[in-house]
Amino acid sequence: MERPGSSSDQVLIDRARAGDDRAFRDLVERHEPRVAATVVGMLGSGDEAEDVGQETFIRLYRSLDRFRGESSLGTYVTRIAINLSLTALKKRKRWISRFVSQDETERDLPEASWDPRGELERKEDVRRVREAVERLAPNHRAVVVLRMIDGYSTRETSEILGIPGGTVMSRLARAMERLEREMKESEDG
């Protein structure tokens, strides 16, 4: 995400720590695409995603003194974003848990495959796959967002979520299976 000729993350962090608002604003603009992909992927677009996106960077600002650079700033900020998104989903779940059974989101599904279609239906397919992602269980959704949208490797995803790599793979496989099935069902229906 770093532009040629622009300051490195570390330089911007040092300046932001010294109270330079412009430097922090540059950091926000640099990492906004990654945070937006993560938060909107997890929560869908809207005010809640905007709020969690803002809160992600405010938490980042308040933890700049503790950032030691063991991971890249991108990974660090993604970890904050995914954790805040999961918390937001938990709050949301309190409201809807009476109406949607967890068994329904976690049940084993039969094998299915889905045929991607031509360009004409692409936008409709994008909408349907986004809706299908929003129906995934939060822990499966997080893996799909980090692996398939943000482009993190299995190892990076494992570090961000604090779960073993094997769990990342198994959740991803199950989530992709469900997405294929939902795409096929909505196409047939």
Binding site: V40, A49, I149
Partner: peptide, 8 residues
């Protein structure tokens, strides 16, 4: 599709 639909 996931890539195409991602918010940036």
């Amino acid at each position: 599709l996931l890539q195409q639909g991602a918010a940036r």
